Simulated assay, not measured.
Amino acid sequence: MPESRTAPVARVVVGVSGSPGSLTALRRAADVARCRGAELWPVLAWEPPGGDLAARRSPAAIVLLPEWERLARERLLRALCAVFGGTDTGVPGQALVARGAPGPALVRIADRPQDVLVVGAGRRGRLHRVLRPSAGRYCLARAGCPVLAVPPSPLQQALATAHRRNTWRLRLDTGRVEREFGTVPPDA
């Protein structure tokens, strides 16, 4: 009897951190999975505080590793609930928590040519890029499958600006925000 080999199911792998940009990417990934008839694989990658090297050197880290992984699972579940109103995404697939740096973990999981890797492409300043490398840039440079980089919502930039102004105790220009997002007519 000849052995039947079925082609692996296409997957849409999406990096989730709980940030507003990753929630936007998660929603877009679900739409892509529905359109392609693919599975949705939300992935939250985590590392111990200080990285794996620090965790290996600390005896206390061995005791704390299960707790850190539990916290990562909770963060992934909160992200799913924020986007879908619960843990059911409405698309077949599985949610994963992967230990490791986000970029390498996502590239390792999205290892099939028919996969699509979805990442948030947040706006980042030069200093932030130097101190904390972008998982999205890593994935774009190294993934062996198509990568969809989802830009942040325009509201995210407005929120960041308002937060910065609030931190510095500067007056907020609510009129500009209202004009940009359509709550006030442009000629008002």
Rank of each mutant, 00 (worst) to 15 (best):
E39Y: 03
L40A: 12
W41T: 15
W41A: 04
W41R: 09
P42L: 06
P42N: 10
V43P: 01
L44R: 15
A45Q: 02
A45G: 07
W46G: 02
E47W: 12
P49A: 11
G50P: 10
G51Q: 10
G51S: 07
G51P: 02
D52S: 11
D52L: 11
A54L: 14
A54W: 08
A55N: 02
R56I: 08
R57G: 12
S58N: 13
P59A: 13
A61W: 04
A61G: 04
A61V: 08
I62M: 05
L65N: 04
P66N: 13
P66M: 10
P66V: 10
R70T: 03
R70Q: 11
R70A: 14
L71P: 00
L71C: 09
A72P: 07
R73Y: 02
R73G: 03
E74R: 11
E74A: 14
E74M: 12
R75V: 01
L77R: 14
L77C: 11
R78N: 08
R78D: 14
R78K: 11
A79W: 02
L80K: 11
L80C: 09
L80Y: 05
L80N: 07
A82I: 00
A82Q: 09
V83I: 08
F84K: 14
F84G: 11
G86A: 10
G90N: 13
G90K: 13
G90V: 13
V91W: 00
V91I: 15
V91D: 00
G93P: 03
Q94Y: 06
A95E: 06
A95G: 05
A95N: 08
L96D: 01
V97Q: 02
R99I: 12
G100C: 05
G100Y: 02
A101K: 08
A101Y: 01
A105D: 03
A105I: 07
L106R: 04
L106E: 01
L106C: 06
V107L: 15
R108D: 13
R108L: 13
I109D: 01
I109T: 10
I109K: 05
R112C: 10
R112G: 08
R112D: 10
P113S: 15
P113V: 15
P113D: 09
V116S: 07
L117C: 07
L117V: 11
L117R: 09
G120F: 07
A121H: 14
A121L: 12
A121W: 13
G122Q: 08
G122N: 07
G122L: 10
G122R: 12
